[in-house]
Each structure stands twice: as C-alpha cells, then as structure tokens.
C-alpha cells in the first residue's frame, strides 16, 4: 500500500526553482533514503511533505486521500532540531505530545518509554540547555515519535553526529523500520545503503533515479573488471573496445577499467586472451560499481 503519493511537486522561491516536478511514492512499512548533494532540494521537499511549506505546484496524497491536514500522522525531525532550553526532556516531550493531540497522562508515559528507547532515561530531568549535540538529536527523534506517527520524516538525522552517535542512530532507525514508514535524507551514501530499502536521488530539484536497492543494483550498477599490468595496456585496450560484451573501456596508466554486460563471458574471454597474449598482469579484479559511482554519475561529475 502506498503511504504517500507525490505528483509533480514543485517549489520556487522568488526566481529559484528549489524543487521541480518531483513525483514519487512511499510504500508503507519501508525505509526510503532521499539522496542528493547539498542544495539539491532535499530539505525543501521534506518540509513540503511535513506540511511546513506550501508547494507552488503539485499534489501530495496521504494514505490515498487528499485530506488537507495529515500532520498528526507525521513525525518530523528537522536538520537542526531546536528545543526550549528552559524545559527538561520530559516536559518537552509531554508538550509535543499534547500538541499532537495526546492526553497529558498518555503523553507522559509515552515520553518515559521513548526516553528509555533512545537511551536518555538518566538525563530526563535535566534542562535541555545543558545537553550535548548527540543527546539533542536523540531527543529530536523522540519528539518526532511521541504520537506514534505512521510516517517518520528525518532530515539529515546522522550528518551532524560523531561516529558513535551515528552508529546509535542508524541502529535505532533499523529497529524502527519494522514499525513505521521512514523517509530520511542524507548525503552519506554508506548510511543509506545500510538502512534503507528504497532510494531516491534528486539533483537540482529533480528526481534523477528511484527504486529499491536490489532494483538499483540490477538496473544501474554495472559489473566491472579491473586489470592492472606491469606495462602499458593502451594497444590492447583499443582492441577490447570492439568486443560486444564490453560496453566501456577506461584506461588509466597501467590499469584498465572494463564495464561489461555479461560478466561470466567477459571474464573467460579476457582470461583466455591474457594467457594467449602473455600480458604481464599484476591483478585481475571483478566487481561492480557502487551507489557512490551512480550518485556521482547522477550529479554529473
């Protein structure tokens, strides 16, 4: 089932088109990563989905209906969550819970539960003003989840954290994945690959690539064979370009990068030719391009 369906979403600020004709859907119970370089329009997109910005054009259907206000089903963590420094964690969570329409007592017990979950039970009575960045990020996650939303939107949840905090946050997201639909933005591809099921890459406000991780691997990630040798491979490379199984040849000094369409066939043919021509290779590596290569291709570098 589709949790959210976005059609032709656009947002322009004065003359700048931050988001341009973006269409996608989020499936229920899945974790989607929104990838893109800085300034691609990630935050603008998320803010529109969270109801903080009014789109210039386009529609957002939530749970199949066009109901105007679905904010009570959404938990949102902005890039830099801010808090009232004069409140303590429990007061803040109860306040946010009440704003989401919960009764005070329910919000209070849920707050205790969440603080336990994010590992802040021992600091819950301290003023937020004295919290570290990592604690604030955890509290930010907790406030986004206080009303048990159906969809959790996280804007760069890990990029401001140290390695330990980052690990904790990723583990937490993995645990949450089963319970709710998650959409998070990041520019760290490794994190995306680790926790998400689906990937959307946007560039300059437009959707560049979208799909599930296996789909992307199948459709976009290519098999490559990297051959290094002790002498220049220029002349051999030129003959390889004519092979049908090889789609692209890149030569760098004594190293060849071959993009191949049929890995098995290419491998045996290449190995046969290497023996036949007695090419003095030093290494022969079979692999595939990474999400990062795809990302770089999308971004156009």
């Amino acid at each position: 089932m589709k949790m959210m369906e976005v059609t032709a979403l656009s947002k322009s600020f004065d003359t700048v088109n931050a988001v341009n004709n973006l269409s996608f859907s989020l499936k229920e119970g899945r974790c989607t990563a929104l990838l893109g370089p800085n300034g691609a329009g990630k935050t603008t997109t998320l803010e529109m989905l969270a109801g903080l910005l009014v789109p210039t054009k386009g529609t957002i259907l939530f749970m199949g209906s066009n109901q105007a206000d679905y904010r009570e089903h959404i938990g949102y963590l902005p890039q830099q969550p801010v808090f009232f420094s004069w409140m303590n964690a429990v007061e803040y969570l109860v306040f946010m819970g009440e704003l989401s329409g919960m009764a005070k007592a329910t919000a209070a017990s849920r707050a205790d539960e969440l603080l336990e979950l994010v590992g802040m039970a021992d600091a819950k009575k301290r003023r937020i003003g004295g919290y570290s960045g990592g604690m604030k990020q955890r509290l930010g996650i907790a406030q986004a989840m206080i009303h048990e939303p159906k969809l959790l939107i996280l804007d760069e949840p890990v990029s401001a954290l140290d390695p330990v905090g980052r690990r904790d946050m990723l583990e937490m997201m993995k645990r949450l994945k089963g319970h709710m639909t998650i959409l998070f933005s990041t520019h760290i591809l490794h994190d995306a690959e680790e926790v998400c099921d689906d990937v959307m890459m946007i560039h300059k406000g437009e959707l560049a690539v979208a799909g599930s991780l296996p789909e992307l691997r199948r459709n976009y990630l290519e098999n490559i064979i990297i051959i290094s040798a002790e002498e220049s491979l220029d002349t051999w490379a030129r003959t390889l370009e004519r092979w049908t199984v090889i789609t692209e040849v890149r030569v760098r000094n004594n190293t060849l990068e071959l993009f191949v369409s049929d890995l098995d066939k290419a491998r045996s043919q290449l190995l046969a030719e290497i023996t036949e021509k007695k090419i003095p290779i030093s290494s022969f590596t079979v692999g595939s391009t990474t999400l990062e290569d795809l990302f770089m291709k999308v971004v156009g570098k």
């Binding site: 803010e47 903080l52 904010r71």
Partner: peptide, 13 residues
C-alpha cells in the same frame, strides 16, 4: 529565528 516555530507547526497546530 531559532527554528522553534517549525518544530511546533509541524505538529497538528
């Protein structure tokens, strides 16, 4: 300025 407004308005208020 602080961004607190967004934290509040993202709730159904």
């Amino acid at each position: 300025r602080s961004g607190m407004m967004k934290m509040i308005l993202v709730k159904p208020v």
